[in-house]
Design a protein around this nucleic acid. Structure first.
Lengths: 283, 283
DNA sequence: GGCAGCGATACCTCATGGGTATCGATCCCG
DNA sequence: CGGGATCGATACCCATGAGGTATCGCTGCC
């Protein structure tokens, strides 16, 4: 299955074989044998290009999920073994540079619990938290709707906030009490920067390229870009930047998410610490 | 991993090997090797009994999920291949004998869709739908909260209904307009029947044994048992049975559920057909 | 104390996964 | 229009390792 995913992603037997660290002929045979076992044509080989069939596309999705599940099984078992012999811990995946205040509160609240263990933070790129949770590199994650998808996880809502546009301090719009999306997406002098995708390549289009938040803020301060972000980022803004609420931007909801069959008491503790409201309303 | 799950479930190398169709020594070696690869003690062997360690319990849960995911990948790919060459179809898992009216409506509404395909019904025992969905034997399922758990699936609420107690027509309580749970659980003459678990064995306790709904209704009609069930079962009641609403029984919510990464247009169609309310409210 | 039950070990066999060399079909380009 | 380059398939070989049989060693138990 790992083999099939590699070929389906590369759409090229040679490169896929190289990526897998094996030769090309065994890979060809393995795929053919998988096709015979499943009784399904997975790839269309036209001697010049390889394309996925309908069934191949289905298998690609399902196989990714399955491979993530076995990786998660191995990783979580290793961690569980470490936890009994050495220092126990729990891995929390969160977006780099987001919700620092909420995160600090959460960590403080959890640390106050009687059986709290070490919380290892895993700072992820855009949308990487889901993957981390799925393949076991993280035990629990903070996700941001509507950007991330919570499909397949148990979640608990933490907070909802509006979005602001981040502008250079001197910009004409920076004095406004509020703006609308159209006001800032159509600024020819301040285009949205482009972020690298998971493969490290930048999408086409106008706007400068930014690799991280520091670069992003630098670009904005220089008057070369603007950016829309959740309100809570205000606490991290430099002095030469301004934030103006965007009225019609979708509100961002932060949720804490964990794999549905998790029985870890550390994860349960974190979730409990993250949602004190339920206790409050009960009392 | 299959090997480990077998041993962890049997807690006995010999029986597990037999179940797997292999000899005992290779199984011992495979487990030991898995333990070395993961760097974790999974089983406590005390020469007279085998028990799970902490890490072993984690792996058991995770490995079950992973194995289900792998099976699901194979099954769904096979079905996808069949769908392109032969007759396409979608498998709907539902509890045997439940929500027949809702189900009929759903099937009718879906059949009216332009690109509807054959819907194969998979009638499941108590709580089996989740398993079917997880390991790919079903593409979509009707679940009943709070009995089933929707963990790990995408869901859409269909309807919520109260519960009724089913009594013999002549019973004193049958004339009441409503009862409370305590009124019927403490009837010494009408105990709740016992259902077989997933392994086919009956739990201990009072009450007759029933294997299916026909037997259950027969027992009630004979004045040997009573039963609490969702309101909608009234349409299937025989004439010699009566149903009385139970005030404080938890309401039952029927939801349609599907695996979160499903991109099947048939599943999407079924969900759309199941939730016409969104269309209605829009119009 | 002998026996039965159970997991571990020793040793053998063969199926299978992987490697190298090569073929056959396209497409590209001069 | 033909030669070379590209890429997947095929043929053949070898080594690893999964699985089988026989047996050991430990531990309760009658």
């Amino acid at each position: 299955m790992r083999y099939f995913v590699a070929v389906a992603e590369e759409l090229h037997f040679g490169r896929a074989a190289q990526r897998l660290g094996i030769a090309q002929p065994p890979l060809s045979r393995a795929i053919r044998q998988l096709e015979r076992r499943l009784g399904a044509a997975l790839l269309e080989r036209s001697s010049r290009a390889v394309t996925l069939t309908e069934a191949g596309a289905v298998l690609l999705r399902e196989a990714r999920a399955a491979l993530d599940a076995v990786e998660a099984a191995e990783r979580r078992t290793r961690r569980a073994a470490l936890a009994t012999t050495g220092r126990p811990g729990v891995v929390l995946a969160t977006k780099a540079g987001a919700s620092s205040e909420l995160l600090a509160q959460l960590l403080a609240a959890y640390a106050a619990e009687p059986d709290a263990v070490t919380v290892d933070l895993l700072l992820c790129g855009i949308g990487e938290q889901e993957r981390m949770l799925r393949d076991g590199r993280a035990d629990v994650a903070l996700l941001h709707l509507p950007f991330d998808t919570t499909a397949g996880f148990d979640t608990e809502e933490l907070c909802t906030e509006g979005q602001v546009v981040i502008l250079p301090a001197g910009h004409p719009l920076a004095g406004r009490a509020q703006v609308r999306t159209a006001d800032v997406t159509e600024l020819p002098d301040l285009p949205m920067p482009r972020w690298p995708g998971r493969d490290g390549s930048y999408p086409d289009g106008p706007g400068p390229q930014a690799r991280d938040h520091a670069q992003l803020f630098q670009l904005i301060a220089l008057g070369r870009a603007c950016w829309i972000a959740p309100e809570s980022c205000r606490t991290q803004l430099r002095e030469d930047l301004a934030a103006v609420p965007v009225l019609d931007a979708p509100p961002v909801t932060t949720v804490i998410a964990w794999p549905p069959h998790s029985r870890s008491r550390a994860v349960a503790g974190l979730v409990r610490a993250a949602t004190p409201r339920s206790h409050v309303t009960v009392v």
